[in-house]
Design a protein around this nucleic acid. Structure first.
Lengths: 208, 208
DNA sequence: ACCAAAACAGACCGGTTGACCTGTTTGTAT
DNA sequence: ATACAAACAGGTCAACCGGTCTGTTTTGGT
């Protein structure tokens, strides 16, 4: 039919692009509304994609969630946290840089949507073991990267155990401060933690 | 009818008790499954209550959630955290006591269900402004109580600002460590943070 | 040129959810 | 005693969710 051909102009199969758009839309929606509060239809609408396409790339909502965690959340942590921290001249300077950039971004936007990893971790860790292990893996890699930096700098004693424990404190206080900032819709907890952590990393007897 | 009277044995109106059972069941369900993943029917079943009673005490699910936050979550934070910390001989000892008790409880149970405040905060803060302010208030009171203890002890400089900032670090690192423990289903992050925080509160030049 | 498989479109369905509503029972003020 | 409101029972309903299904178009191998 002529009208059919006229309406649907053309269709270019682009699997990777389609998959990318779906992951982008899902990651944004999960970030701002959470996993359970986001329906697959919302993801479809915001990605401009039909149900058939969504089902083709991600057979279930859970598969979509796992892909978001492994391909988007992990990358976001790597990009906004691990990389700038690792490439900083010192650990203390890394804290200031990372927190400073994130605070800049938050102040530019109005609202505090929180850390995507933390948001999904608290919502999904107990719901499903697949989610739990995927999220736990991201946390572990994050903490390990921070510990490597601390250990390379010989901060806080020589032991690798101490570096690991201090890395846990750093990651935990960032996650918790972001949670507080989200609940209060105020960046003050993040600023306070940044100052305290930087002071902690500057002061103590280094190079034992 | 005789059969009617025989079946429904008797009914004692007990508004406070009914309300308490509903809040208990809802708090437990929200804690382990989250707010959105818990249906009102599940709450009804686990509380042994009919729909009419639930609707009478809490007209909407949101009203139930707000009551859980204000009457159960806030009380839990007060009981398990604020009170033992405030009554400890020193702040450092308070950290050890609070974390120790919580770690004992976690090790006794198998799973890490996480901090109820943090769980609900990340799930609901962005969803609704009423939830956000209720959750933010609990966080603020928690941090303020910790800051009072630190200030009374003259930890970390004389300034009240420093006490407030250090309190933010303490609350944030606990919340974040619990999130990491939940994601990893392992209490190691909590133990690490407890050690680091206690060391931080012990060491520095106190009583300037 | 042809055809099988991948990529996509769009409708459909059972199950569930939160909310509501109409009755009935219990407590209480008078 | 009796009227009236609070407390509770239990069913109903539209809306929605995630998953599935069938059909069409595009793509790439031969």
């Amino acid at each position: 039919m002529a009208e059919r051909a006229a309406r649907e102009r053309r269709r270019a199969n682009d699997p990777e692009g389609m998959r990318r758009r779906l992951l982008d839309a899902a990651a944004a929606a999960f970030q701002s509304r959470g996993y359970h509060s986001t329906s697959t239809q919302e993801v479809m609408r915001e990605a401009g994609v039909t149900g058939g396409a969504l089902h083709h790339h991600f057979p279930t909502k859970k598969a979509l969630g796992l892909a978001v965690i492994r391909e988007r959340v992990a990358a976001a942590v790597e990009e906004t946290w691990i990389a700038p921290f690792a490439s900083a001249p010192t650990a203390a300077e890394g804290i200031r840089t990372v927190f400073g950039r994130i605070l800049d971004g938050l102040n530019r936007r109005g609202t505090v949507v929180g850390c995507p990893l933390n948001n999904l971790a608290l919502e999904l860790s107990l719901a499903d073991t697949d989610f739990q292990s995927a999220l736990g893996a991201v946390f572990e890699e994050w903490q390990a990267a921070v510990a490597r930096k601390l250990h390379a700098e010989r901060v806080a004693g020589t032991g690798a155990d101490e570096a690991e424990a201090l890395a846990a404190l750093i990651v935990a206080s960032y996650s918790g401060a972001m949670a507080m900032a989200k609940a209060a819709q105020d960046t003050a907890p993040l600023e306070a933690c940044a100052r305290q952590l930087a002071r902690l990393l500057d002061e103590p007897a280094r190079r034992a």
